[in-house]
Amino acid sequence: MFLHLGDGYMIPTRDIVLIGDLEKVNQSEVSQEFMEIATEEGFVIDYSDGNPKSFVLTGETVYLSMISSHTLAKRVKELFKENGGNSNG
């Protein structure tokens, strides 16, 4: 199964560690520092067309998306329902 991040970009759901709201990252000093380091180290890929609303953390990458974290989480939930809870993807 794959999660659509917007603008035709997709990632395997089995790789997802966390889906987060970028606005909330800006409210936490630790989260801001994490995102700054991830960006400096080249671990951030921006799929948001310069308008990020959310991020998806995998084991190796942080993906920025123009789609809200709520909508992305809802999509993952729906994918699991459709596939009977099987995360193989």
Rank of each mutant, 00 (worst) to 15 (best):
M1T: 10
F2V: 15
L3V: 06
H4Y: 10
H4S: 05
H4R: 15
L5H: 00
G6A: 02
G6Y: 07
D7H: 05
G8V: 09
G8K: 14
Y9T: 04
Y9W: 12
Y9K: 07
Y9G: 01
Y9C: 15
Y9F: 06
M10R: 15
M10P: 05
M10I: 03
M10L: 09
P12K: 07
T13F: 00
T13W: 04
T13Q: 06
D15T: 12
I16F: 04
I16P: 07
V17K: 11
V17D: 11
L18M: 13
I19K: 00
I19Y: 00
I19H: 00
I19P: 10
G20A: 14
G20I: 05
D21E: 09
L22F: 00
L22K: 02
E23H: 11
E23Q: 02
K24N: 10
V25D: 05
N26E: 14
N26W: 04
N26A: 03
S28Q: 11
S28A: 10
E29T: 09
S31D: 11
S31T: 05
Q32G: 15
E33T: 10
F34D: 03
M35R: 08
E36T: 10
I37M: 04
I37D: 14
A38L: 08
E41M: 09
E41Q: 06
G42Y: 08
F43W: 07
V44H: 15
V44D: 00
I45Q: 03
D46S: 00
S48L: 10
D49H: 12
D49S: 06
G50F: 01
N51S: 11
N51H: 15
P52E: 02
K53C: 00
K53H: 00
S54M: 12
S54Q: 06
F55G: 07
V56A: 00
L57I: 15
L57V: 09
T58E: 01
T58Q: 10
G59N: 02
E60H: 06
T61N: 01
T61G: 10
V62T: 13
Y63S: 15
L64D: 00
S65W: 07
S65N: 11
S65P: 09
M66Q: 02
M66R: 01
I67E: 08
I67T: 06
S68E: 02
S69V: 06
T71W: 03
L72K: 04
L72E: 00
A73S: 14
A73Y: 09
A73Q: 07
K74G: 12
K74A: 01
K74R: 07
R75V: 08
R75G: 01
R75L: 13
R75T: 13
V76Q: 12
V76W: 08
K77T: 13
K77F: 13
K77I: 07
K77A: 08
K77H: 09
E78M: 02
E78I: 12
L79V: 03
F80L: 04
F80P: 11
K81D: 08
E82Y: 13
E82S: 10
E82M: 11
E82D: 06
E82W: 02
N83Y: 04
G84H: 13
G85W: 08
N86R: 04
S87E: 04
S87L: 10
N88D: 10
G89M: 05
G89P: 12
